[in-house]
Amino acid sequence: MPKVFKPSVKLTDNDVTDERIYRERRQIVKAMGFVGASSLLAKSATADWFWEDDDKKAAARRPLSFQEPGKYSTSETRTPFAKVSSYNNFYEFGTDKSDPAENAGQLQTSPWTLRVDGLVENPLKLDADDLTERFPLEERIYRLRCVEAWSMVIPWVGFELAALLRAAKPLSSAKYVAFETLYDPKQMPGQASRFMGGGIDYPYVEGLRLDEAMHPLTLMAVGLYGKTLPPQNGAPIRLVVPWKYGFKSIKSLVRIRLTDKRPPTTWNRLAPQEYGFYANVNPDVAHPRWSQASERRITTGGLFTRNRIETEMFNGYSEVAPLYQGMNLTKWY
């Protein structure tokens, strides 16, 4: 069992500053701390100044019905919703962690089409309603470990990717699964401007080996904290692979393709010596910029919370170890 994380103060979600106050503070700090040059370039963010009334309203979230958390969930202290939804790496909406919450609110998630094709017997097309209705939903409280050495505990709502893949009936020649995020520069300012998007070649793509994709821990999330996903967290549907670094858990999916070749993945393409295809959480393999031996757990509490904890192999999900039997995980990072 992974070590249970104990924060120095015990707070419930209600004790936490509500989201609005967060965003206001964040605006002030941002305004004083230099308006990011990238946001100066972005049309959508020209009014980014602290007296700006937050006119870009947060997207409405719909409650979901789902089964209570089962055996795969952790009982660790959850990261409050305000933090989960305001601290995101989603470069399609800007490289600053507060950019997605500010710029993604208007993302059109309905109508939506998610295609499942490639080496399958039964190609599928799911529309917006299918995403939350076709498969029974359940809550999964997972640890999320970012490659930048911070982590959160998030109550996702979703279904196993395996269920979706079984419905599509992979051919025996299928070995890998390739994932693709929406490409729509009109909605995603980071795709329209190199500066907003950090110079990444879009669309964002990710991949898994078929056996990783079929593992029961691998989740297609359509919600968090009991309601549909906020756009900044990857609405309307995203992947969650809890034993891998966060960048593997690709957001706002439009296509899932089964293939016989290892698909290219965005961060690996950008810096192959820093980000591997596997990207399993591994405290023994350092990234050039981050020792991965420990992490800071983001929950409630300010600067003085002692929240640095040891990082566990596979982020504590040791049940996936058999997938990598006999592999040198230092080489296949």
Binding site: R26, K83, I298, G302
Partner: peptide, 10 residues
């Protein structure tokens, strides 16, 4: 702001 957890998520 940092000590009172009013400095954003992290």
């Amino acid at each position: 702001w940092g000590a009172t957890d009013n400095l954003g998520a992290d």
